[in-house]
Nucleic acid binder design. Structure first.
Lengths: 118, 118
DNA sequence: ACAATCTACAACCAGATGGTTGTAGGTTGT
DNA sequence: ACAACCTACAACCATCTGGTTGTAGATTGT
């Protein structure tokens, strides 16, 4: 696959891939609502610490979450701007759809009368 | 992983997974803008017909696209309602974040005075 | 009738994904 | 000093993903 590989498409790949896992979506919900250490997050899920730590890393690489070091803990925090960017992509998809509707209206407008000036 | 596995989370997994590939996002853009046969779509990409056909199937399984049979062709059309549903999920994530801000404001409001009844 | 076209799906393959355990280094509390 | 805790990352494994080719059925055009 690997098309021309634009910068924006790379980011989108990472965003949607990060969001395509329910555990990661749940982690993102928690860290959007407030800072949590990785180990605090790990206690919430029925899997190893390492697994949760990898999920956090995926979210971090996608830019949906940032970590800040405080002592021995790594405090994770959701990045709402990135979430908004993802939402914006969806809005752009909707705009394409509206374009289709506009084109259909145009067809109907010029088509149904069959005869008529303007 | 495989948490309790709610219905909504299954759908979200399918949505985001379908969107996590640039070829599929591009196909979705095209079919949102207007109906296209699978083979017409396939001509646009530098990969086999079967590969494109599988991408279309992924989008269809996720509910982002529907197919209608016309003669020997399968005409694919984007489902804007599904796209909106995905966007709504993102909006809900943003709402969680706003909750965090509200809580911070609350803390500042009750915290700075240090002493005060109520 | 027959060739060309469109679709669907199976079988296969390399590489990515999501989980595991284990090891090691930095920080904290007693 | 030392045990407990938190994090990071490597190595390993089963399964999934995204691509391929090949086969077969249905529709269309001449």
């Amino acid at each position: 696959m690997t098309q021309p590989s634009s910068e924006a498409e790379d980011r989108a790949d990472a965003w949607f891939h990060a969001l395509a896992d329910r555990t990661r979506r749940d982690i993102l919900r928690r860290v959007l609502a407030g800072e949590h250490s990785v180990s605090a997050l790990a206690k919430r899920y029925d899997m190893s610490f390492a697994a949760v730590q990898k999920h956090v890393a995926v979210l971090e690489r996608a830019g949906l979450l940032t970590k800040r070091r405080q002592g021995r803990e790594a405090l994770a925090s959701g990045d709402v701007e990135a979430v908004r960017s993802v939402g914006l992509m969806l809005t752009e998809l909707e705009a394409l759809w509206r374009g289709r509707i506009a084109r259909m209206d145009e067809l109907l407008a010029t088509d149904t009368p069959t005869h008529e000036k303007d």
